[in-house]
Design a protein around this nucleic acid. Sequence first.
DNA 1: TTTATTTATTTTAGCAACTGAAATATTTAG
DNA 2: CTAAATATTTCAGTTGCTAAAATAAATAAA
Lengths: 155, 155
Amino acid sequence: MNENNPNDIIQQFRVASRKYSDASIFMHEAIARKAGLTGSDHKYLGLILQHDQLTAGDISKLTGLTGGAVTGLIDRLEKKKLLKRQFTKDDRRKVIIIPNMENSMKLLQPIFSELQRKTTDLLATFSEKEIQIIKRYFTEATVIMNETTNNLNNK
Amino acid sequence: MNENNPNDIIQQFRVASRKYSDASIFMHEAIARKAGLTGSDHKYLGLILQHDQLTAGDISKLTGLTGGAVTGLIDRLEKKKLLKRQFTKDDRRKVIIIPNMENSMKLLQPIFSELQRKTTDLLATFSEKEIQIIKRYFTEATVIMNETTNNLNNK
DNA sequence: TTTATTTATTTTAGCAACTGAAATATTTAG
DNA sequence: CTAAATATTTCAGTTGCTAAAATAAATAAA
């Protein structure tokens, strides 16, 4: 039962990993509140900001929200000038959503800045090699989680 | 601008870290849906299960929910037999909540099992020393996120 | 004591965001 | 040129939230 038993190490790792997830969810919501957004809107805005532009339908697929919910989401974010609707001659049924990165950054960056400074300091305590190791874990765990999500949703 | 530039490595790390967070949030919700819970109820159940017992008030502090919302949360989880209310002679205003770990596991474990197998396999591709490095990152990043959350909420 | 204050939970009224379905508008296919 | 398909919005109903009032019990004060 000493702490170098591989099973104990993995068990401790899982505990640390779960606490990390819990903490990141709560922080995400605290940031949202501070920015005057709901946790949901903040989460989906983060996804939308990763694209140059996308349609309402794309957002529906990306988020899993129904069409009606997407309309509401876009309404709220547009009112806050964090994105805008753009109508196109190409296919006039579609609505192209253009994220406003500048306004979004202006809103979120000040809230993030302390966090970003602290994580930069934390990363400085790891070697480049160690950072690569952690990055590999993140990347491969992300693949696994996305697979799991797809399996759960499509059956 | 080669990929060994430290700033690039950190930038790539941040991207991987954000994708990991996004994936974990979506998976968490997919698991919840599969288990017949809302994302919220699943999240809070996870917190409650980390305790042997706690009061309604404790849950309110733990989750940040108001009293009324906690009553609703307990009602829904009690109806699903994932916890129970227990009244005590000691202080009859209080309601002690006893999580039902067995039923919760019976509900969630089958959904988790594939994920757990895959992450075990993933961890097997890292040395003990590497796992300790990742664990340290998780642990210290968790402290930073909790600090950030507290700072945001208390002012 | 017995009364007032504090503490713990539940109930209530109102609100915000979601779903599923119907409505609207436009494009594509027959 | 009509029918079917596609993209978004609107609508009605539901759920879970907040804030405040109600209820109940414990503690402190007179």
